[in-house]
């Protein structure tokens, strides 16, 4: 039952976020300060999602050359930075993970 509430809640907040400004009447201006702030939301939130997956292990900070997720993530960041290709980023990161796993 909880699962259905979760599904409904997720669907509603997500659609409201998507529709928000598109539903305002044509004459209404978006406040410039809000638009400036919103510009940083994707980079900030998306980074905040993956950063702990690399730097933490079992909820503890693990910055070490023995952390193969951190190393493989660094490879993927480099590939993403240089080539901007989703598939190459995911593939290089997974290959690097297995490689570092085997080396360490």
């Amino acid at each position: 039952m909880n699962l259905w509430y979760t599904l409904a809640g997720m669907a509603i907040v997500t659609y409201l976020a998507r529709a928000s400004f598109l539903l305002l009447p044509a004459g209404v201006e978006t406040p410039p300060l809000l638009r400036r702030a919103l510009r940083y939301v994707p980079a900030a939130v998306l980074t905040a999602i993956w950063a702990p997956e690399l730097a933490l292990q079992k909820e503890v900070l693990f910055l070490s050359l023995e952390n193969e997720r951190l190393l493989a993530g660094a490879v993927a960041v480099g590939v993403a930075w240089r080539f901007r290709l989703t598939f190459a980023t995911i593939a290089s990161g997974l290959i690097a993970l297995h490689l570092f796993d085997w080396l360490i």
């Binding site: 980074t47 999602i49 993956w50 997956e53 993530g73 989703t86 980023t89 995911i90 990161g93």
Partner: peptide
């Protein structure tokens, strides 16, 4: 591990 990698692929090109 592909999940964080997919987020890397989405976020890094924004920078």
């Amino acid at each position: 591990f592909a999940a964080p990698l997919a987020f890397i692929a989405m976020s890094v090109p924004l920078l």
